[in-house]
Amino acid sequence: MLEPARSESLSRDALRLSGVDKLYDGRHAVQALSGIDLRVPEGQFAAILGPSGCGKSTLLNIVAGFEHATRGEVEVFGEPVHAPAPDRAVVFQEPALFPWLTVWKNVVFSAELRGMPKSSYVDLAREYIATVGLSGFERHLPDQLSGGMKQRVGIARALLMEPRVLLMDEPFGALDAQTRLQMQELLLSVWEEQLKTIIFITHDIDEAILLADIVYVMSARPGRLSFRLPIDLPRPRAVDLVTDEAFNALRRQIFSEIRGHD
C-alpha cells in the first residue's frame, strides 16, 4: 500500500527550485543561499537538514513566498511563486497562532478568510482537531495550551487549508524531547494517511531520518545543498525506529558527510 521510495521520475514535481541564490544586501552583505537546485515530487516527504544559520529557513521562506530569491526560479506545480498563498501551508517554529482567537477560530481562520459557508468546513475542522488530539480544547486560547498543543493547532490549521505543499520550519525545534517524539509520531501518522508533499526544515538528524523519504543536507555560508540521501526505511514508521541498525547506518552516513563539509 505504501511505497517508501516512490520513483521520482514517474510522479510530477510539486516543487522545483533551480539556481536559486539569495543575497542580503546591506553593510555586511550575506549570501544566504547559493545555487540551490531542488526537485520534490508530489507526495514526497523531503527534509532539509542543516545547522542554524545555514539558510534553510530562508529557503523555506522563499518557497512560502515570504521572501524572494535574488536569482533563480521557484515553481510549485509548475507555477512560479510570487507571494504567499493557501496552496502552500506553513507550520512555523513559533506556532504563530492568533492569541485573541480560540483554538477553533485559529483552525478555521483560513476558511473564514475565504468566506466559505460554515457547513462546508465545520466537519472537516472537527476531524482535523481530533486528528491532532485536541478535541475538547476548541474553546481554549493559545496561551492556555502547552507548546506541543499549540503546535498541534498549527498543524490542524495547515491541514484545513488543504494545501498542495506543506512547509514546516523546524516545527518541533522548541519542544522538549518527549513532546517532540509525540509530535513526530503524530506527523508520521498524518502524513502516511494523507501523503501530502512536505518540506520539513530541521537541524535534528534523527528527526530528518525518521520522518523523511529523502534528506537534503545543507551547509552554511553560503547555504547550499551539499548532499542528498534517500531514506529507504519501511513505512509505516514509529519512533522506536531510532534504535534500528539501518537507522544508525543512515545516521553515520549523514554525520560523516557533515564532518566532511565543516
Binding site: 507571494a83 504567499p84 498563498a85 506553513v90 512555523f92 492568533f98 481562520f109 483560513s110 478568510l113 487549508m161
Partner: peptide, 19 residues
Amino acid sequence: NLIRAARMMGATPRQLLFR
C-alpha cells in the same frame, strides 16, 4: 509571524488590517 501566517492563509490587505 502572525502577518505571515495570515498571508499564507490567503488574507487580503484589508483582512490583514482588520483581523
